[in-house]
């Protein structure tokens, strides 16, 4: 459908970034941000379903759960939390730069955000590797003797399955996030943004912060509760 405006002669000063079915830039921006928020609503329910199922099993099998948390390294988890929080800071500053029209800063901050995002994924890979070595990967590499506690083997396997499901799904979101940053960065380098038009930066920022929030909950749920049973 060509943008043949035939009958639409309302907007005289036509911003090239304004799509034909919107009347004003503000309306377009508000729609995009609201759209992202509604999308995040669905994301909350996505993760919510997993959190719910995981919580049910954890409360059904508290001892087995305690035995799994021994295999979660709170150091790596904590480090990753810190890394993600820094990335959220650079992201927030990137959005700020975009709003102010500071193109150079925007690009630098986007690159930094990507680097921290990749660092997070790197740490996650180290952890996954450790689980593999310990034979804690259900189905592919699971020790039926479960570290000398075979009575927990079945239940712990379910809990580990949820661990991989949740962190894997979160990591997938990180990969999508980093890819988004790459796209935004290329758009920024092309000079696509200015102080009037920065919608893609804004809504990608919302997405990035959301992924950060999910981790803020995953960290205590997976790594911290049960920590006291092993350190004291």
């Amino acid at each position: 459908m060509a943008d043949s405006h035939g009958v639409v002669a309302e907007h005289a000063e036509h911003n090239p970034n304004l799509r034909h079915h919107f009347d004003t830039m503000a309306q377009q921006f508000d729609s995009a941000t609201l759209g992202m928020w509604v999308f995040l609503l669905t994301e909350i329910m996505f993760f919510g379903g997993m959190f719910g199922a995981y919580t049910v099993y954890r409360s059904m099998y508290p001892e087995a759960f305690a035995s799994t948390s021994k295999h979660m390294d709170a150091f790596w988890g904590g480090l990753n939390t810190a890394v993600l929080i820094v990335s959220s800071l650079t992201m927030a500053l990137a959005v700020r730069a975009a709003r102010l029209g500071q193109q150079k800063n925007l690009q630098i901050l986007l690159v930094l955000t990507m680097i921290f995002g990749l660092a997070f994924l790197g740490v996650k890979a180290i952890e996954y590797h450790a689980h593999w070595v310990e034979h804690m990967v259900p189905y592919w590499n699971w020790d039926p003797n479960y570290d000398g506690q075979p009575q927990y083997a079945h239940n712990a396997q379910i809990l580990f399955c949820f661990y991989f499901f949740m962190t894997g799904f979160h990591a997938l979101h990180m990969i999508v996030g980093v890819s988004l940053m790459l796209v935004i960065l290329m758009m920024a380098r092309r000079g696509a943004f200015n102080a009037e038009y920065f919608t893609p930066v804004e809504i990608s920022g919302l997405y990035w912060h959301f992924v950060d929030i999910v981790w803020i909950f995953l960290f205590p749920l997976l790594y911290l509760i049960g920590l006291h049973q092993h350190t004291t």
Binding site: V38, L41, M45, G48, G49, M50, A53
Partner: peptide
């Protein structure tokens, strides 16, 4: 649609 569908999606994934 927005609030309910994700949960059934995750259920079927499980």
């Amino acid at each position: 649609q927005v609030l309910g569908t994700p949960v059934v999606a995750i259920t079927l994934a499980l």
